[in-house]
Amino acid sequence: MSGALRIERVVTSGVFQLDGGTWDVDNNVWLVGDDDEVVIVDAAHDEKAITQAVGERHVVAVVCTHAHNDHVTVAPQLGKNLHAPVVLHPADRELWDLTHPGEKFWPAAHAERLAVAGTALEFLHTPGHSPGSLCLHLPEAKALFSGDTLFAGGPGATGRSFSDFPTIITSIRDRLLSLPEDTLVHTGHGDGTTVGAEAPYLAEWIARGH
């Protein structure tokens, strides 16, 4: 028996670097699967901690919600050591190359689905925080893995290179807030939220951005 589908969180710590700045950050790494196989969502900072959480399970893929260095720190190493493809939207190639020049990844497309543990994760292309930001929707578990696109309290940051505020608002409005209100949002940093909790604030976010 493979056991029930479950979602596990591993919190890792390191640095985020972009545009000449460096910030200490804690990242959420998500494992989605059962007793036999698992998908790793984001490969942040600490390969050993992630590998220990995986255990003896088969890793279907290492999916990167975007290519900021703190979300892909150990992605190539994990992919090679666990014999799993590293998945990223190709629009984040330039960001990826800042951290892992020359390393290959498997390009993800919007609405593509990745099978794991008898269900499937759907890729939602949600540009704005970065050109290739992805969210992963798992309808069976009423779950969304939002990376840095949506947090409890608002959209992800858009004040640095490769980001755009109107674009992230469009992504959230059209592809995330249209999901069922009871969808749990598992974020790239910090505590989660629900689609229903964030939806009422869309107009406020838009006003705040002008």
Rank of each mutant, 00 (worst) to 15 (best):
H45R: 12
I206D: 11
A61K: 01
R173E: 15
N28K: 08
L150Q: 09
H89I: 10
K104V: 14
A53P: 12
G209K: 10
L134W: 01
V87I: 04
V86D: 12
V60A: 04
D26Q: 14
V87Y: 06
L78E: 11
P76G: 00
G132Q: 15
S171V: 06
K104L: 15
Q52C: 09
W30Q: 06
V116F: 00
H58A: 11
D174I: 09
W23K: 14
D174E: 14
P127C: 01
E103M: 15
I50D: 03
L144N: 13
E181H: 12
G79Y: 07
D46R: 05
K80Y: 11
L177Q: 09
P107S: 02
H129R: 05
D46Q: 10
A75K: 06
E103N: 08
G147K: 08
V32T: 01
R160L: 15
W30V: 12
T12C: 13
P166W: 11
K80T: 10
P85F: 13
N69H: 03
A43N: 04
H189C: 10
H210A: 13
D35C: 04
E94K: 12
I7S: 05
L98R: 12
V11N: 02
D24H: 01
I50R: 06
G3N: 01
L150P: 04
A197F: 02
Q17Y: 05
E140P: 05
H110L: 04
A117W: 01
E8Y: 01
A197V: 05
L78A: 05
V72K: 00
W106I: 07
E37K: 00
L114K: 00
C135P: 04
L179R: 01
L31G: 05
G153Q: 10
I7P: 02
V10E: 02
V29H: 00
P131R: 12
H189W: 03
L179N: 00
H58C: 02
